[in-house]
Design a protein around this nucleic acid. Sequence first.
DNA 1: TGCTGTCAAGAGCAGTGCTCTCGTCTGTTG
DNA 2: CAACAGACGAGAGCACTGCTCTTGACAGCA
Lengths: 235, 235
Amino acid sequence: MLSGYAMLPVVTNARERARTELTREIKDLARRHLAEHGAAGLSLRAVARDLGMVSSAVYRYFPSRDELLTALIIDAYDAVGAAAETAAAGVRRGDLLGRWLAATRAVREWAVAHPQEWALLFGSPVPGYAAPRDTVDPAARIPLLLLAVIADGTGDPAPLPPLPRQVRTDLAALRRQVGGTFSEPLLARAVMAWTHLVGCISFELFGHLVGSVTDYPAWFDLQVRALATSVGVSR
Amino acid sequence: MLSGYAMLPVVTNARERARTELTREIKDLARRHLAEHGAAGLSLRAVARDLGMVSSAVYRYFPSRDELLTALIIDAYDAVGAAAETAAAGVRRGDLLGRWLAATRAVREWAVAHPQEWALLFGSPVPGYAAPRDTVDPAARIPLLLLAVIADGTGDPAPLPPLPRQVRTDLAALRRQVGGTFSEPLLARAVMAWTHLVGCISFELFGHLVGSVTDYPAWFDLQVRALATSVGVSR
DNA sequence: TGCTGTCAAGAGCAGTGCTCTCGTCTGTTG
DNA sequence: CAACAGACGAGAGCACTGCTCTTGACAGCA
């Protein structure tokens, strides 16, 4: 029981190895089911059936369907975050607009490739399901990446109406959280840009632009370029 | 009953009356269930049970669960559209910013009061469920209302990067659809504002701002004021 | 008065999440 | 080495879902 737990549990027993392996297999298959039938259609029994197991056996690995969903959510946040980070890292540090475009485009492309997972992250929350604490760190990866680009920018956001007191308080707290020396209007514009970016992708994926927009990438490009300007990222 | 519509067959039999009445009752109760348990938890059987009926009887009125959802979606679009329209109509025509703020605030307030219905409209689409044609007219009410305000504005949108060819084509088609003499950048800014507005409300309702924002109305106000400027609506 | 179509009810099918029990097998410990 | 605690997969079962089919009662029309 307590073997090797003192140090790090790298003592992969055959059993432990089988367990982590099966856990991964379940998640992978669940992800495929999710992609095909959506979150609502994700059935533990169907996953178990496709795995040649019996449904009750899966409960040894995930205590509930929601736990499985949580695991998928965390994986998805990490996947889209990593995609954005590698895309941005592939651009010369001084090319701010290039980094901004690379990161935002990577987010959109990941979303287009994994629409159901995007819906899981940014669509309707499952009622009665509160996102557990473990999701907030992975969820913060993209906003933090965007802030890193903004931090290297001119620091000149598009003008804003005067900030209400409570908004300024929120922004001050936010600045303490993220570190850096962002001005309040700049930070406000950053939050707005993040809001708009997600809204933009969701609008496309959720079908609110069918009939109005034909060239989604071009539209997206236009919008994120405008957003770049609004947060002082140019050239 | 009295027939107000001359031509239309308003020959309400007792049977027809009972039918429309029961249809309304089912929808009302379904709406309440929706508000409590979300779209995923909307159970036809539960609605029937609360109505003192048997589940199969409900199928006489709505051929499937999805049809019921569609009816609720149309009603919701109409409700939020009407809320925005009456709010805007309560403001002097010349007070553009006032109309803009009234309309957008009304949308947010309706959403906050009916979060599950908002999620139904703007959250994750149900997979395998294509929004029927009947939903597009009600869905267009708010965008058209916002365009009506914009049409009375200065027509001076915030600057934009050069519009790609395909985007200009889309915008030209859109202008033909909505009528009016909007410039392409102005129309582009209008679409962006609508995107941002929905993203803004969804971010709040779907919990993506917990921990960062405390005063949601103030934050919302700031954003829609900035949006007003971006579409040439001021003072 | 009959005919026709509508209605609510009930049984039933296939599926779901989840729980509990029961042998089996495994890794660890005395 | 032997015994035991824990993990494991299988299976049955509960309460629930959407949906279908059949049945018998009733209302409106001719």
